[in-house]
Amino acid sequence: MNPAIETHNLSKSYGEVRAVEGVSLRVERGEIYGFLGLNGAGKTTTIRALLGMIKPGAGSVKLLDQPIGPNGRGPWRQVGHMVERPSAYPELSVRENLEIARRLQKIADRGATPKAIERLGLGTYADRKAGGLSTGNLQRLGLARALLHEPELLILDEPANGLDPAGVVEIRKLLAHLTKERGMTVFMSSHILTEVDRLATRIGIIHKGHLLEELDHDQLEALRGRRLEVKTRDLAAAEETLTLAGYAAIVNEDSLYLHEDHALEAPDVIATILVEEGVPPTRLVVTQENLEDYFLRLTGGAA
């Protein structure tokens, strides 16, 4: 089956500023693709190009096998989206905002609106004016609008923005459910790395308009650095002991770190050495570099 999203050498400049350059993405169907980047990295520009909202300076975009034309044509019946911060007609209620979306989406089923309201937990606010909603509920309204027509492909720009921790978990579960049960493809941009780490099956990292890396979550697991963290009551003595035993121990703040394979594979040996030399460990744990560390390493610590 052809990919859900395919861009080829996508570029876009605003005057002298190159917002996106030569971005070639490939998002397979059923994936949750996390599109990572710092603010201003080119995430929203890429998303706008995917949705035909801006004309690329160069390159092409295909969604669900259909090229996105310069006149806004695209497979929009099968695509749900939320770009940047969510917006709504402030003097209209949540229900009316969704009714407008339902009609523009050409959804005949009148039950789609109440279903979307229920799905996003907006029941209490259904008849409130959108202008009075909190940022989190406005975000839920945006997500409800994106999901109204049960799209095959969901393109979300920072979906966790403004949501409280419970809301973040709820949306994460919803997106996971939709991909698992309905086979929906999700493309989500984010700068919240933990969110992407927990949800995405594939990750693309964009930095200064360039796609630095695209990798599966499993590949990321393999690429992440591992280290053995050791804590003792006497760090200097422990460092000396381990150095004498042939390990390259690095002291950082209140811990010792060992990166060598023979240390990572046999932490019990390290524990034995330290106990025998009278500096028993108070903590001994193999930790894996998190996505944040990996991202910063890749982008040169630009955060």
């Binding site: 006149n71 044509r73 929009w76 989206h81 940047e84 402030p90 009609r103 523009l104 050409k106």
Partner: peptide, 18 residues
């Protein structure tokens, strides 16, 4: 001014129709 234009652009209803 309400930043709702973006909600009108990528829908099955053509922009010309809107």
């Amino acid at each position: 001014s309400d930043r709702t234009a973006k909600e009108l652009l990528a829908t099955p209803t053509r922009r010309e129709t809107i």
